[in-house]
Design a protein around this nucleic acid. Structure first.
Lengths: 341, 341
DNA sequence: CTGAAAGCGCTTACAG
DNA sequence: CTGAAAGCGCTTACAG
């Protein structure tokens, strides 16, 4: 475009105005929707913009409008967890794309430590982003509450626990998904169905366990505490969980695992214990993450509609920035049958 | 902080000046390093800042300085590849952290399609970020050249192919790492060593293959084309590659694989073909990504120092934004021995 | 529909 | 060391 390495002064609205033979106000008006502008002026300005290569200076615009025209994607969990979890990638990608369609850049903000959270909260409340997509499932996360109080538009991924009802969220129907999976296992004739739950201070932990219990009850199978072990969504916790289950109920014939990553760990432990999947033990996961297909055998799982979750998060956030009230969106899940059941 | 949901007008430099009993110029001076400010004024201003809760309006500042105080992290590859690849996560996390230490937010920019690349390039050259961390290994990527020509500070991850020499990059020593791995395999007594390469239009593809050939030559082992198959860094290509190798050289006794993810695929194929690892076939990976430990057996691999790569990328970019010339940084790798050899 | 003018919040020479 | 003033590039009532 220009010579080697030199950034020359970019054209301003003033240059465009002169070029088009109109005032700067008129240029600004066509820039902002073209209301109250004659077709002739409109055209002259557009031509001038093309000729000069003008592009608006967002800083100047933001200074006036008070808006940054960017969105933050905030992670308040320890980072390892998120980066280990394939769901995170899918969500991040989906949100980036949905925002790109609106020409809105996404700022990735990682705040795994107390200290970082303080800094980021300050940064956000100072108005550097117009809204926040918050990925934090654990209850007791003060960030959500702080942002809400500061009046920052906010939408969470997953139904928040322990935050007032006044925060928007988008979530898959965890309980219903769990019901589908456990019904599937029961329909296969399995009766000693173990479960590796998610953390019980997360919605996925609580709701998926609740679905499991409901189906057991409806199938007339007694609830057995020995068949329930907690996990933390990590592969390692799935492995440990399966070992615990096997030690308590050696003849269990199915396991519902609250995430695919944990299910991978379960598979490993079952394999080591000499159990064949699905012949001896059927295994059902949750998420339909890349981990589900990478496993041997591939996992029967519950698909979370991540593409829709991310696009809905963006839609709700943008609406809220535009002045709408909070809202919650619950999306349906789907059973995907593969080799592990 | 304030009441429910209301963002009130935040304090400006003017409020601070009044509160401190000085002029706005003086406030600005302490904000920007405190040069030419008396200790007394300094202190009064700091106290006023604390009392008012003032935080600088970055838009106003940027409007003057012409800088955005933010950095872009740009991916110009098809997104699937990057999100499948654990290295990407590590790099993204590392850069975010390194930048956070400088209080600089990172904008994540995904441009997998021709169309998106055009838009993003425009966005960047318009000055919305001060510099770009570019992750694009393939040669023939026009984005790097365009950004360079527009004078945008830029540092790439991996040695660029086919871009003029005038672009900064940070890379692990691919060739040396490959040499270490192949030497290791040969030292184990293996003589029919296959290789699954990376794409040959990427530095990792070219350099790691070169290292392989060098060691074979130095060990007096004839180069055999049948032992060389190309991959694309995906798990699937590793699997296919191993199958091809086995069909051509059934008694091969080692495989050097140019990425851990591909090595996972190789493991799968070998397992299916009834070969035991490492007894029958030793397998060496590259990256030391999470995939290396997740595999069975765990992979002997070449560690890329991602933490240093990301921090060096940030350091070089910041230096360049500060006016320094381009520079290249090559970082040493390390052999990590695990169960697969 | 359009221009002239004020102002967003800050930085930076310029005089003192 | 410090204040007054100009100006960064834009938007938005305000008159016409």
């Amino acid at each position: 475009m220009s010579h080697s390495g030199g950034r020359r002064r970019p054209p301003t609205i003033h240059d465009v105005a002169r070029e088009a033979g109109v005032s700067r106000g008129t240029v600004s008006r066509v820039l902002n929707g073209g209301h109250y502008v004659s077709p002739a002026a409109q055209e002259a300005v557009n031509a001038a913009i093309r000729r000069t290569g003008y592009v608006v200076n967002r800083h100047a615009r933001s200074l006036i409008t008070g808006r940054s025209d960017s969105i933050g994607f905030l992670l308040t969990e320890p980072q390892e967890r998120f980066f280990e979890d394939p769901n995170f990638n899918v969500l991040l990608r989906g949100c980036t794309q949905a925002l790109a369609a609106h020409d809105i850049p996404l700022l990735l903000m990682l705040a795994g430590t107390e200290d970082e959270r303080r800094r980021i909260t300050r940064y956000i409340t100072a108005g550097h982003v117009d809204g926040v997509l918050l990925v934090s499932s654990h209850s007791g996360d003060p960030v959500a509450e702080q942002l809400r109080e500061a009046g920052v538009p906010l939408v969470m991924c997953g139904k928040p626990i322990g935050v007032g009802s006044k925060v928007s969220y988008v979530a898959a129907d965890d309980r219903d998904g769990a019901r589908d999976m456990v019904r599937h296992l029961v329909s296969l004739g399995r009766r000693r169905v173990g479960v590796v739950t998610g953390p019980l201070d997360t919605p996925g932990g609580v709701e998926r366990l609740a679905g499991y219990r409901e189906v057991l009850a409806e199938a007339g199978i007694a609830y057995d505490e020995r068949l329930v072990v907690p996990g933390d969504y990590s592969r390692a916790s799935g492995e440990a969980g399966a070992e615990l289950l096997l030690s308590r109920v050696p003849d269990l014939d199915a396991v519902f695992v609250a995430s695919d990553l944990m299910a991978q760990g379960v598979l490993t432990a079952l394999h080591r214990a000499g159990r064949e999947v699905p012949r001896d033990v059927a295994v059902g996961g949750f998420d339909d993450s890349p981990a589900a297909v990478a496993s041997t055998p591939a996992l029967t799982t519950i698909r979370q509609p991540w593409d829709r979750i991310s696009s809905e998060m963006v839609r709700v956030l943008l609406a809220q920035i535009g002045g709408d009230d909070q809202s919650a969106v619950i999306l349906p899940t789907e059973l995907v049958r593969r080799g592990s059941t």
